[in-house]
Amino acid sequence: MSAETRDSLDPAAVARLEPLELVARTLVEGFLKGHHFSAAKGASIEFAEHRPYAAGDDVRRVDWKAFGKTDRFYLKEYEDETNVRATMIVDASGSMAFGTAGITKARYAACLAAGIGYLLLAQRDAVGLAVAGAALRRYLPPKATARHLRGIFDALDAERAEGPTLLAACIHRVAERLRRRSLVVIVSDFLDDPREVVTAIAHLRHRHADVLAFHVLDPAEAEFPFKEWALFQDSEDPSARLRIDARQIRDVYLENLAEHLDVLRKGCAALEADYSVLTTRKPFDAALAAALDARSRRTK
């Protein structure tokens, strides 16, 4: 990957771009350029019928073999096939507003979701959006149109990270709405009961959905760099406070976090769901590659 491409995927640099559509295009084009992917690769287009040429039709779609046989112009009609119906569940709870690396978790999640949406639509896939918070705040069913994708971008831009997290309940609500085999992408900090979240993912799997879970962590959450006494206030509940010597509690914190992640990782592995942990310093390309990979597996 070139330095230019790497810069285009740097989370802090990307977070500064507006609007989200531009972010998505920058991410995907940089990603594809870096990995020499083709936008049409994997697309499935099947022949449907011939129809006579009409003024204004694209001459490139003329079937020249038929012209040789019949001496008349016919156009080949294809039936577009939407390969994948993807739904992205993006966490917009209060805990996602936290950020120390020049970007909040919420912005990172929005950028990542926008990139994945843009990439999937480029594959002619239908893309939908579910915004999770204390309840399922917004649900846009999957569609394969650019206009719909812009609606998704607008929705991601409009959402504010606030309120408590009830991620598992939101996933259950999305699972209930799935009609066909789907790809579900979850972007969240998973600050919910990990066993309930795993149960919700099992619900998705039961509905024949492939699941791709991105666990977004801020570097401070991952490393707990505090070295003195601090008064910790809960982002989702300001009344919850804890005055403690950070040096003394660091190992407890890291242990608890590791255990939390362990439950999620093992649960996802058992359900054959993809699970990745990302810090907001990590470039988006790995996540996009994972999304593309999951999409490929889904279409085989």
Binding site: E221, L231, D234, E236, L242, R243
Partner: peptide, 14 residues
């Protein structure tokens, strides 16, 4: 002198 920190992962501090 403890400084205030808004912290999302309170559950891991206990």
């Amino acid at each position: 002198r403890a400084r205030a920190v808004a912290w999302p992962a309170m559950r891991f501090l206990v």
